Each structure stands twice: as structure tokens, then as C-alpha cells.
Simulated scan of single mutants.
Amino acid sequence: MEKVPMTVRGEKQLREELDRLLKLRPQISEAIAEARELGDLKENAEYHAAREEQGICEAQIRDIEYKLSVAQVIDVTKLDNSGKIIFGSTVTLIDINTDAEQTYQIVGDDEADIKSGRISVSSPIARGLIGKMEGDEVTIVTPGGQKDFEIDKVAYL
């Protein structure tokens, strides 16, 4: 089984979601029991809705448990970091053509959220940055075309 990289923050969020879903289980079971008491199950909308909710909840629990089982949690604050871009690092880039500044944290696929500045380690930008150093200039081919960046700052938060 191949391990999947994940940040400490990503693991914490998954564990919190798993705890929430596990606490929801008894409530769903109770809703099913209450709906059963209402009578004929064939035409009982409350029963069918509760069973559907139970199925969704159980699928989410299995999915999270699997993700946690294959996760390789990487804490960048405990690694020897000397300005080199690695998984989990936060990188500030300056677009050489527009002088626009962008900051990204390189995270696992499931943690990626571009609106929050978290990009997947398998994204074109992250792949182009891994292994580079603070101060380097890089050219990255993205789906939107070729981009030229200067690596302004590398942080390990």
C-alpha cells in the first residue's frame, strides 16, 4: 500500500471530521428506530431518508479511515529546512512579468484548496517548485500557459 503525504493540519481535520461522524451514528440509528415505529416501511419517507443518511455517513467514515490508514503525516517544522521547497512548505512567489505576489502551501491532494492558498503536491506549480531554493527563478508550465516566478520566501509553518 503506497503512502500518501499529508500535513499535520490535514490529519487533524480528518480526525475531527471522523469524530463528528462517529458521534452522528447513534443519532441516525435513533432516527431509524423512530421512523420504524411509524408503521409501513415501504411508504415511510422518514425511514428511507434516515437509511440514506446512514449509508452516506458510513461511506464517509470508511473513506476517512482509509485516508488516515495510508497517510504519511509530514511535520515540516521538525525537518531540517534550509530554504529548500519541500512538501508542506509555504512559498511566496513573485510573478516576474506582473510583479504579483502569491503565497501557496504545498499540501496533499485531499487538503488542496486554492482559495485558501493550499495547492496539491501533484499540481504543476508544486511539481515545478519542489527542490528549488529561496531566491531561485523558475519557469512553470501550467494549463494556463508558461509562468515565470521568483521564489521570494520559503517558510516551514
Rank of each mutant, 00 (worst) to 15 (best):
I74G: 00
I85A: 03
L68E: 05
G83P: 01
I61M: 02
V73I: 08
D75K: 05
I64R: 02
E46I: 07
L68V: 04
E53P: 03
E43H: 13
I61R: 02
E53C: 04
I61A: 03
I74H: 01
G55V: 03
K84Y: 11
N44W: 01
A45G: 10
Q60I: 07
D75Q: 07
D63H: 11
F87N: 04
G83T: 03
A50N: 03
A45W: 13
S82E: 15
E53T: 07
K84W: 06
G88H: 02
V70L: 06
Y47R: 05
L79N: 09
V73S: 06
E65F: 07
A71M: 03
E43I: 13
A59H: 04
E65H: 08
Q60R: 15
E65W: 06
A50F: 00
S69D: 05
A71N: 04
Y66F: 12
Q60S: 11
V70Y: 08
V73N: 07
K42G: 15
A49Q: 08
A71G: 01
K42F: 12
V76N: 10
R51M: 15
Y66Q: 12
G55N: 06
V73T: 07
E52T: 08
L41I: 12
K84M: 12
C57R: 01
T77K: 14
E65L: 15
V76A: 11
G88A: 02
Q54M: 09
Y66S: 09
V70E: 04
S82M: 15
A59Y: 01
I61T: 01
G88W: 00
D80H: 15
I61Q: 02
N44L: 01
K78Y: 09
S69I: 06
L79Y: 08
S69T: 01
D63S: 13
E52C: 06
Q54R: 13
E46S: 10
Y47L: 03
I85K: 00
H48M: 11
E46Q: 12
I85S: 00
Y47I: 02
S69W: 02
Q60P: 07
Y66I: 12
R62Q: 15
K84P: 05
F87H: 01
V76C: 08
L41E: 15
Y47N: 03
D75E: 04
K78R: 15
D80F: 13
Q72L: 14
V70K: 06
V70P: 07
N44F: 00
F87C: 05
Q54C: 04
T77H: 08
E65C: 08
S82W: 15
K67G: 08
D63Y: 14
Y66N: 14
E43C: 11
R51W: 11
A71Y: 00
H48Y: 09
D80K: 15
I74L: 06
E46K: 10
L68F: 04
V76R: 08
D80L: 15
R51K: 13
N81M: 13
G83H: 04
S69A: 05
I61H: 02
D80G: 15
